[in-house]
Amino acid sequence: MTAVLETRALSVSYGGVRALADVDVEVGEGQLVGLIGPNGAGKTTWIDAVCGFVPATGETRLDGRTISGMPPTARARAGLGRTWQAAELFDDLTVRENLSVAADRRPMWRLVGEALTGRESDPPNVESTLELLGIGELADVAADELTQGQRKLVGVARALAPGPRVVCLDEPAAGLDSAESRALGQRLRQVVDSGVAMLLVDHDMGLVLGVCDRVVVLEFGRVIAAGPPEVVRRDPKVTEAYLGRAAQESQAILDASAIGTGT
């Protein structure tokens, strides 16, 4: 399997703080990869670095082509999409416009011509993306009138509308209740099955471990574990990173008692 998106020795420093240190992550064709880790582990920094929003060393490759050093717009146009923790929608536009402005990749002179002739045309993917995420009925609502959960979905839709090769989702389920979160997971799975590779950052472990093909765990800017969800779930380093040593011990006790009662 070829990697759609991969980073090699990706490092980011803020002043003296090493936010990412030699991070290797690989997202293969048709894969849904989870990127998890405690607060401050560097998950969002990884997305920012990959998408060109913070200066980074190391290499980022998209479809085997290096994109390190390219500005964010060029990376987006090369097929890299992303969402933001705070959705960051274009609040002056409707939901449909949010999608079409992102999906329309025609050169600027074509748009100028369109403005002069007054003819409008919508890019093809917009309606189907709205339907895919189940927000078709919101199409004509102004973005600043949405609820937080709806904003997150529109953010995901906006990243998918241009038909990217790979999207990085930054906590799309934050602010959703568990039922909504499960529904989102199913939809993301559908998207991946339709051929878009995906990297998912989220705090909802149920979501990440439930839908991802592979999971990468960061702590203090380093990869501490990577592999299939069931392996990562049992990795003691991961439990420790998340819950601390004491919790890990209590977890062991719980596991032991669970075995003892046969459940």
Binding site: W84, S100, E114, R158
Partner: peptide, 27 residues
């Protein structure tokens, strides 16, 4: 006409959020 068309939407996207506009492939 600019406001109605894509060009106007791009302008408003830039006005709303320059980072998000760049991430959406808008120059």
């Amino acid at each position: 006409s600019v406001r109605r068309g894509r060009l106007g939407q791009q302008m408003l996207a830039v006005r709303s959020n320059e980072s998000a506009a760049a991430a959406a492939g808008i120059s």
